[in-house]
Design a protein around this nucleic acid. Structure first.
Lengths: 114, 114
DNA sequence: AGACTGTATTCATGGTTTTGAATGTGAGGA
DNA sequence: TCCTCACATTCAAAACCATGAATACAGTCT
């Protein structure tokens, strides 16, 4: 696979508004699926589908913690691309949610501004 | 159109190996279609098709000069994204071709390293 | 005008993506 | 064990993308 093909695959995974929103959230640090579900106001299955695309493209890693699954960006390239295209993390379009906002895990999970 | 949708459209246009090659060539400055045709070893119609995608996404501008058409990147964002993902212009994968390499316009056009 | 040259467009077809709906899975608690 | 919760996967239909082949178009030259 050439460098161009690899980069094209990365861009392809990012070429979707909802996946960009997800990645924008993950720029600030780990997040569980229920966090994204609340933040984006989308059905859980849909979020999970988009996360699968990002996972298969190697852009995110996941880690299981009890019932929840936390996602994070797997390298710095994606973050750098977002910084280039959307501006620094501080200027992110996504609301900063401290503590997981979803009804069930709000007291346990911590999503801090990196 | 939200910021995410706009960025997704840009990434979508870049999510193709040949279009990335084209943009990589254009990072160094203007280039005519026959230049790209020679540099990439692809049929002219195919190059033109990919250029149309880039044009419609607003990533490149074109300018006619006699029989030839010269293309250039239309803003700095695309260039910055390539720099982030592929490294500085000097490290480009594309061979530096000084003077248009195609058989017909080799003596007139100039494609200099920016 | 007619021919040629560089570039653009159209068309057809096969492949891939998108998305809602439904269902599966595995960990934890009663 | 059985239930629930958080998440993942499968399926199917519509929309969209990729690409070869053929053709159109607009300058330039004679």
């Amino acid at each position: 696979m050439t460098a161009y093909e690899e980069l094209a695959a990365r861009f392809k995974a990012l070429a979707h508004p909802v996946r960009l929103q997800i990645v924008d959230i993950l720029r600030r640090g780990d997040a569980c699926v229920c966090h994204m579900e609340t933040a984006l106001g989308r059905r859980q299955a849909y979020i999970s589908q988009q996360l699968m695309v990002l996972r298969e493209a190697g852009l995110v890693d996941s880690r299981k913690e009890g019932l929840q699954v936390f996602y994070r960006l797997s390298d710095h390239v994606t973050e750098d691309l977002l910084n280039t295209a959307l501006g620094a993390v501080g200027e992110s379009q996504q609301p900063v949610l401290t503590g997981c906002p979803c009804p069930h895990c709000s007291t346990s999970a911590v999503t801090s501004v990196s």
